[in-house]
Design a protein around this nucleic acid. Structure first.
Length: 603
RNA sequence: GGCCCCGUAGCUCAGCUGGAUAGAGCAAUUGACUUCUAAUCAAUAGGUCGCACGUUCGAGUCGUGCCGGGGUCACCA
């Protein structure tokens, strides 16, 4: 049987929308036809585009295994592939590389199939999961700062990616609202206003609807309390006691806590809205409070926890450990619970309420040891089903130009809001300096500046490899050249503008044809999306999507330069190019949406 | 000291399960706007992939050991 018949069948039966998968299958069958492992047929995008669009290096590995000459094997494979008639060019180079160039019909046929699918074939074959993404992590009384930037941006992007793939996604902001900082705040407020009813043990309520402090005051109180606790051991001790009392239900503290939490949530929502982050759940550490005693009792009863140095701990060290693995502390010697306890309790509650297949924690890489302890404890204590994947998605720090973690000029913490506002201001400045601000009405200009500024920050963050630290340089991020958010947006805006003009002139799109290499290259870039999505998902790496969209916009800009669309005299070519523009725009916007970047109509 | 992350062009960074001559972007030099947005495109120049061994036909990629930077190592989050 000729492989052409076999592959045609196979390809259509698989309905795969990934070009590389299709090609790998085809080439794999050529290997199989000669009693070689079809896995050798793996096709990748060519590293040397002048030699071909794709390449297969499998002949080298196959030759090694079979003890034959790689060029001989490659020659045979090429001969086999030529029978299919799907390739415009097949060549053999170097020690046994096979270079491949597709027939235009094959490429266009593939692109038709791909673009007919709203998700460009990316969801195909994805097994839907129920997944919880835990990110953001703001704290009561502390304004969100630069440390929350990456957690929010990366977490939101991973959430969007999973939603796109068809997973059921729960996103939990997981407020930091239950630890020692709460005790510190309560005591600091008491210091300033000792006569409030919240501090009267005899008083049983009701408590006032409005709390005694504003959000601005709260943000001053926390650093003050934190500093005081370092200098004053008596105060520190009283804060620890207050934390314990709060956790054990002291009514006045609870009422005060509720007030602090409410105003803090309101404040952080503004930041999250600006960054386009969406949470299905606004839970926090405190939500574990009812479950906490039950969990502690079970772990004690079932022998998972024990007393060590006055604290209740779960030992999580394993015999095979090379490194030191401290136990997870459930209760300090003063009885208060810690964030490891609430994290473990949260896992149990999530298991009970949602039964997820996977939980992703998008949290600073410096907390990797903490999460390893928590995950080990969760496994050991059967807190969640063993199949549920628990993963810490760590990330590096945001640094200043000096390479050290970003600080304000006087060494303080950089507030998230300030960072965002600076970016928008920088975008506004660049637009003004480019002398194009008069093209837009005031409100549109503001909308553009906001989108450009936010996209600059987001793209810069997401395009870096997650684990690396990166240098925050607004001037560079807001440039409209190179690998920046604005550059990606600009390509999309150019297409939008062109499509508006086409509509005005009554021009319509039509079937794809390929007449120029710039068109073929753009098609190939579009066809590469499924691989990018799969890799980004597997590695939880948005930077792979950034790379993809950059390659795409670059190919588009080259196409835009080489191939006129509206002015093209040949009607079928013009219609085809319009079609290609439509598909390109749809994909750019799709990927940018996954990254959390909004595209304006004009810029 | 143990463990984790990082080290690639002057600067900021990619490099997928090992494959051909290591790639982008800034910055530098040079071309292209009577033409769909030049916020663009094209070209030139720029490298001992921290160092040294090892595995392999083949190493930026895998292994081991060093060097340099950052982080972390039970009652903070």
């Amino acid at each position: 049987m000729s492989i052409q018949v076999a592959t045609q069948k196979k390809v259509s039966a698989q309905v795969t929308l990934s070009l590389l998968t299709q090609l790998s299958t085809l080439v794999g069958q050529a290997f199989a036809a000669h009693d070689l492992d079809p896995a050798f047929g793996k096709v990748v995008i060519s590293q040397r585009r002048e030699l071909g669009q794709f390449q297969c290096n499998g002949a080298l590995a196959a030759a090694k295994q079979a003890g034959k000459n790689p060029r001989d094997i490659a020659t045979v494979i090429v001969g086999e592939l030529e029978k299919t008639g799907l390739f415009a060019e097949l060549s053999l180079a170097g020690p046994g590389f096979i270079n491949i160039r597709l027939q235009d019909d094959f490429l266009i046929g593939h692109l038709n199939e791909l673009s007919a699918d709203p998700g460009f074939g990316c969801q195909h074959g994805h097994q839907a999961q129920k997944i919880i993404v835990d990110y953001g992590g703001p704290n009561v009384a502390k304004a969100m700062h630069v440390g929350h930037l990456r957690a929010t941006i990366i977490g939101e992007s991973l959430r969007r990616l999973r939603v796109f793939l068809g997973d059921t996604v729960i996103s939990d902001v997981h407020f930091g609202d239950w630890g020692l900082p709460m005790g510190l705040l309560i005591k600091e407020i008491e210091l300033g206003q000792p006569d409030l009813v919240y501090f009267d043990v005899e008083y049983t309520g009701p408590y006032p609807d409005d709390g005694p402090v504003t959000v601005e005051e709260l943000q001053i109180l926390y650093p003050a309390a934190s500093a005081r606790s370092k200098e004053d051991p008596v105060f520190a001790e009283s804060a620890r006691a207050a934390t314990f009392d709060l956790q054990n239900g002291r009514a006045g503290y609870r009422a005060l806590w509720q007030h602090m939490r409410d105003i803090s949530v309101g404040e952080t929502k503004t930041d999250f809205d600006l960054l386009g982050a969406h949470f299905t759940d606004w839970k926090g550490e405190a939500d574990t409070n009812d479950h906490m005693p039950l969990m502690l009792a079970r772990l004690k009863e079932e022998g998972y926890s024990e007393i060590s140095e006055g604290a209740v701990v779960v030992h999580v060290a394993e015999g095979t450990d090379k490194k030191k693995m401290p136990p997870l502390i459930l209760q300090k010697s003063d009885g208060a619970v810690m964030y490891g306890t609430t994290d473990l309790a949260t896992i149990e509650m999530r298991a009970h309420e949602s039964d997820p297949d996977c939980i992703l924690y998008v949290v600073d890489a410096r907390q990797s040891l903490h999460f390893e302890q928590v995950f080990r404890a969760a496994r050991k204590c059967n807190s969640i089903k063993p199949e549920c994947q628990l993963e810490h998605i760590g990330f590096g720090t945001v640094n200043g130009k000096d390479g050290k973690p970003l600080k304000t000029r006087d060494g303080g913490v950089v507030r998230l809001r300030a960072l965002i506002e600076d970016a928008i201001a920088e975008a506004r400045k660049v637009i003004t300096e480019a002398g194009i601000s008069d093209r837009f009405a005031a409100d549109e200009l503001e909308d553009i500046a906001t989108k450009v500024g936010i996209s600059a920050i987001k793209y810069a963050d997401l395009s870096n490899q997650r684990m690396s630290n990166y240098i925050f340089d607004l001037e560079r991020f807001t440039k409209f050249e190179g690998r920046t958010g604005p550059y990606q947006m600009y390509a999309a805006v150019r297409i939008k503008s062109m499509l508006r003009k086409a509509a005005d002139q009554g021009l319509t799109s039509g079937p794809l044809v390929a007449t120029h290499d710039a068109e073929r290259n753009l098609m190939l870039a579009i066809a590469a999306l499924p691989e990018a999505v799969i890799a980004a998902t597997e590695k939880n790496a948005p930077n792979i999507l950034c790379e993809h969209v950059y390659a795409l916009t670059q190919e588009f800009n080259a196409f835009y330069h080489d191939c006129h669309v509206l002015g093209e005299k040949d009607e079928s070519i013009r219609a085809s190019r319009l079609k290609l523009c439509e598909i390109t725009l749809r994909q750019i916007e799709l990927v940018l949406e996954i990254l959390g970047i909004d595209v304006p109509e004009r810029m």
